[in-house]
Structure formats: C-alpha cells, structure tokens
Design a protein around this nucleic acid. Structure first.
Length: 599
RNA sequence: GGGGGUGUAGCUCAAUUGGUUAGAGCGCUGCCCUGUCACGGCAGAGGUUACGGGUUCGAGCCCCGCCACUCCCGCCA
C-alpha cells in the first residue's frame, strides 16, 4: 500500500503536501455541490473533501454513492480548512485532504447496526454485537479496550522480565484432575477411550518448573473451566500466572504491588499507594461480611452478640445461646427503603437459611420496626451508640451462626450500597482504587454432606507454620499461607506458599482430604515423585487478566475486554460454535454420541 | 439445575394497560442543496410484534409452552 499517513496524523505542518490515506468511510456529508467524507482508521479520523469543480463527474458520482464503512484509498493535497470551518472535536480538525483521486478497496453493504454513533451503538443488543463482533470492535471504545489490553500485557511482560522472571509456556493438553472446577475434555484419537483435559490453570506445571530450577516463572496463561458463566467469568480466560522459589508471602506481596503499580501507571497514569492494606479473612468477614471487601464505603458490620445474650427477644438471644452471633449494619439514609427493597433483602437472608430479616427504620424521630417493642431500654441504648443511629437510618440485623450471619449482612451491605448509589446518597469517585490483601484464610473447610474436609484454596497450599500442630487436633483452626488480592470488591487474584515436602503433601491428600493412596498416585503421583528429587520451597499467585483489564477500562463485564467472548450459555454467535461434527470425526475419536442433535 | 429481566421496522425505542389501518428518531431509497462535521429540506419504502399454542367478538398487551440474549443463586479445588 502507498499509505503515507494514518487518519490521526496530519497536523498544521503537513499543510500543502500530498497525502494518501486509507480507511473506512466513517460518515458522508453530501451538500450537493461539495462532498465531505470522514475517513477513519485505527488511529482516528480525517475529513476529505470532494469538489466537483476539479474532479471528473464519474469519480464524484461514485464517491457520493459510497456507503458507511466501505474501505477506500484517497489521495490528495493536505490543506488548512477555511477559517471558521475547523472542527475542534477531532485532532485533525484544522485541516482536510482535497481529494484528487480515490480507489474503492471494498464496498460495504448496509450495516446491521451503526458503528459511527457511540451513544446508539453502546445500547445495541449484545446478541447482535456478538454476531457481528468485527463491527462491534470497530467502535472506538472497543478498540481502546483492545489497545489497553495489549499495552498492559506488554507492561506486565517488561516488568516481569526486569524482575528476573522467565515466561514459560505450559501445555494446554493436560491430564484430567477432577478436583475443583469442571474441565473441558478432549478425546484422544491415538489412545482410544482416553482423554486430555484443558487446564483450569497451569498450577501443577508451574510447581514442577520450580522443581526444575526455573526459580522465577510467569506466563500470560490461557485457562479453561467448564462452569456456568457470569459477567466476570468466561469459559476460557487469561491469567497472569506467577511462581517463585525461595520466597515467603512478603516477597509475593511486594512483587504484585510493584506489578500493579506499573500497570496502573501505564494504563491510567495513576500512582497507586503501596504497600497495600492487609486484612485477615476473619476480620473481612466480621467487618464486611465477605472475603473480598469493597472498602470504598463504610456501612461495616457491628457485633451485638453480648448486648443480646440475655435479651427477652428470643430470636436474638436464642441464636446466641446456640453458639451464634447477632450482627447489624446501619444503612445511613436508607430509612426510605421501599417495601420491595426490604423484601429483596429478606430474600437474600432467606437464601442463607434465615427465617427473616429484622430491621429498624428511623423515621419521624421514632424507630419503626416490628421488633423494637421487644427491646429493653439498655438494649436500645447499646444499639444507638454502637451503630451511631440517626434520623433517616435503616438498621438491618442478622442472628445466626457466625459465618452465615456475616455473609447475609455482607450481601445486604452491597445491595444497600447499590440502592444508595442509585439515589445519589452514596457516591464513589471513578478513579478510586482500594487495594487489599486478604490473608489468613482457613486452610480447610468442612463438607457436611460428604462428611470430610476439603481445601479452601487448593490442596498444594502450605499451612501457616505455627498452626501445623493443629492439623491433627483442630483442623478448622489451621490457617493457610494463602492470600487474595482484592480491589474495590473484586477478587483480582490469589495464591499461596506451596507445600514442597512430598510427605507433607501426601499427608494432606490421603489423611486430611481422604483421597485413597491409589487415587493419589494416579492423579498426583508424578508431582509427589518430582518433589522427592529436590523441590525448593516455593509459592505463587495468579491474577485474573480479563478482570484486571475490565477494571482499568471501567467495564462491568469482561466480555468488553475480550475480542471474541462467549455468550452466557458458552456459545460463540459469530462462528456458531459449538457445533456438531461428522460421524467420521466421531469414529476417529472412538466416540458414540447418545444425545440426539438439536436442530 | 433454579430465579429475575428483555425480545415490536435494519438500529434505538413508543403504543392510553384488551379496542379502528402498530408509531417516532436514526438508518435506507429518490429528489434538492458549494463549507458540512449528529449537515439541512422534501418525498417514499420498510412489520409473521422472537417462535408455537390458548382465552376472547377482538391479543403487541392476558394464559400455557418454547427459543435467544442478559443478570443473579447453585457451581467456579
């Protein structure tokens, strides 16, 4: 191509030169005697002018029939626009290209939806946007997201390189390890009846790389999970996957704080303060009712267990008597909550097994509530003081076992924040980023139905040194060397210091998690064997790259930062996949399909 | 697997809550227009109201089913 400049390049100093531009017809303004075509490429827009006075009639008529998004090459003279006709909205707005000739590189048909109007296109049905993703991606907002993603990826690689890390690719044809997320399976043609699985993460390979002596590994790794989707979950996604040898938790914190500082500076020009605050899992639950707190607003949980231990209100005192707690939040200014909003919150509470949701509305200088008549004077004084109750407040209670009570109020706290935001009573600055390390998670959780322990994080997580004796006596109290990085209530990533002694790892698999020795050998034998030959102490972390980019782009859905995302049902509307395959393909793979095909 | 929301012209949305021929803006087609940049003006075309049943004298609207998109719960070691 003979392109001399891109469409966001010409400036005053180019006036008078000949230029050749290529791009898409962004918009056409035909004034009868003179024709303007805004030409757009990846970089921006430039106005071109077709003057019939010095153009062949045939050429002018061809130009005046061009549809939006046709691809053309124009050549002409760059000149300053006549005084008073400059367009301050675009960077090239002081000049224009007076067209001498142009070539149609490709004609565009009428588009299924407009791409030149940001306001309209942003509202276009997502189904259409996904079907015609190549049009959707032409929108400047989407192009910006792709560009930012690329820049952050590069910044990550440069930073990690500077910190001495090697980027190592790991297989995506992996072994099925049925613990954890459901996997995508791939039948093996050459090994009838056997399957690969796509990795949920490169967890085991990166630990093996530590055994191999790589010492510092990272990868922008594609990961796959065959679980149901959400706005922030796709079946294939990207992690910034990191593993280091001879380190402890502090080394990880420092590394990630450095990486995120570099990323925020690169993407947004913002200096984020480090080190990040840290909060224990227990404190996060106690204060925010969730393990990924959004600390940009208060409304923290308040413990009232002792105040109601001997209350005549049996719902509260009964919960305490059976080992539970009484907790409450003050939703400042939400006494105006509608019946529907109270009901929504009650549903949250009920979905956690509560019988209902106790509340107090502080309106007209009185406490309006179905339960306040059961409270003694001293209980009311305690409430007023601990919750700093004022006119216009809404108090919401949970009385249940500790974890349940916390989680209920955690959900309700977020819901109240949304309502307050919608009514303008709570505002959070767009550029505020509250980073937080959540630490000291319990190593193990108990599955009541299966009557056994399972790993809160994953089975390779090491226990906090001083808690190791508790493994045999009180497993629930053992803290894992696990950490999550949270920003504004979004779990950005997590990791842990790993177990590197084969006997300890075997003990976890067989004695704690109750995986049979045979099963352990089948699934993890190679790893346990690797650890016998000199495994360094090591640990790592993985950051959700898509979520990271979404946060930087201010987007609520990671679909907006993935070039070709899947729908909520896990399909691709552009390529119409997944799709059926030929009997021949199935035969080669030794597969019989029993479910009838849908038409 | 469960719950909520949406589906009307190519796009974005209306349609008095069951009542005549389903409207508007943008886009599209034609004509006019020499400094526009959301160009403007005139005229026009464009509808299986996602789809399939049902109730009714009458359904875009009510009922049942179904499909798609979307949000949430479960799930995501």
């Amino acid at each position: 191509m003979r392109r001399t400049h891109h469409c966001n390049e010409l400036r005053q100093e180019h006036s008078g030169i000949d230029a050749i531009l290529v791009g898409w017809v962004h918009s056409r303004r035909d004034l009868g005697g003179v024709l303007f075509i805004d030409l757009r490429d990846r970089e921006g827009r430039t106005q071109t002018v077709f003057d019939p006075a010095d153009l062949p009639k045939e050429l002018f008529e061809r130009a005046s029939k061009l549809h939006s998004e046709s691809v053309i090459e124009v050549s002409g003279k760059v000149r300053m626009r006549p005084t008073g006709t400059e367009n301050a909205k675009i960077a090239t707005g002081v000049l224009e290209v007076l067209v001498k000739s142009f070539t149609v590189l490709n004609l565009a048909e009428i588009l299924p939806f407009p791409v030149d109007d940001p306001e309209v296109t942003a509202k276009v049905n997502e189904e259409l946007r996904l079907k015609y993703r190549y049009l959707d991606l032409r929108r400047p907002e989407m192009m910006r997201n792709l560009r930012l993603r690329s820049r952050v990826g590069t910044a990550t690689r440069v930073f990690m390189e500077q910190e001495g890390f090697l980027e190592v690719e790991t297989p995506t044809l992996f072994k099925s390890t049925p613990e954890g997320a459901r996997e995508f399976l791939l039948p093996s043609r050459t090994n009838p009846g056997e399957f690969f699985a796509l990795p949920q993460s490169p967890q085991q390979f990166k630990q093996i790389l530590m055994v191999a002596g790589v010492e510092r590994y990272f990868q922008l790794a594609r990961c796959y999970r065959d679980e149901d989707l959400r706005a922030d979950r796709q079946p294939e996604f990207t992690q910034v996957d990191i593993e280091m040898s001879f380190i402890d938790r502090e080394d990880i914190y420092a590394l990630i704080e450095g990486l995120l500082a570099r990323v925020w500076k690169t993407a947004l020009g913002i200096d984020i303060p480090a080190p990040f605050k840290r909060i224990t899992f227990a404190d996060a639950m106690n204060q925010f009712g969730i393990d990924k707190p959004d600390t940009r607003f208060g409304m923290q949980l308040v413990d009232l267990t002792e105040d109601f231990r001997t209350s005549t209100f049996k719902v509260f005192s009964g919960a305490v008597a059976s080992g539970g707690v009484v907790k409450a939040i003050n939703a400042k200014g939400l006494a105006c909550a509608t019946q529907g909003q109270i009901e929504t919150m009650t549903e949250y509470a009920k979905s956690f097994g509560a019988k209902g949701l106790a509340f107090i509305k502080c309106e007209g200088n009185e406490w309006k509530s179905p339960i306040v008549k059961f409270f003694s004077e001293s209980e009311k004084v305690a409430l007023k003081q601990k919750l700093a109750i004022e006119e216009g407040d809404l108090i919401l209670f949970a009385a249940d076992q500790w974890l349940n009570a916390c989680e209920i109020l955690g959900k309700i706290r977020l819901y109240c924040a949304d309502v307050l935001k919608a009514t303008g009573k709570l505002s959070i600055p767009a550029g505020q980023f509250n980073f937080l390390w959540v630490v000291d998670f319990p190593l193990l959780s108990y599955d009541k139905e299966l009557n056994r322990w399972y790993s809160s994080h994953h089975p390779f997580t090491a226990a906090v040194e001083e808690d190791i004796p508790l493994l045999k006596t009180d497993p629930k109290k053992v803290r894992g060397q696990h950490y999550d990085i949270v920003v504004n209530g979004v779990e950005l990533g997590g990791g842990s210091i790993r177990i590197h002694q084969p006997d300890v790892q075997k003990h976890i698999f067989e004695d704690i998690l109750q995986i049979s020795p045979d099963e352990t050998q089948l699934r993890f034998g190679y790893m346990l064997e690797a650890f016998k030959y000199g495994a360094p102490p090591h640990g790592g972390i993985a950051l959700g790259f898509d979520r990271l980019i979404a946060i930087l782009c201010g987007s609520t859905s990671i679909r907006d930062v993935i070039a070709f995302p899947k729908t909520a049902k896990g399909t691709c509307l552009m390529t119409d996949s997944p799709s059926s395959v030929t009997p021949r393909q199935l035969r080669d793979l030794h597969i019989d399909v029993k479910t009838p095909k849908k038409e």
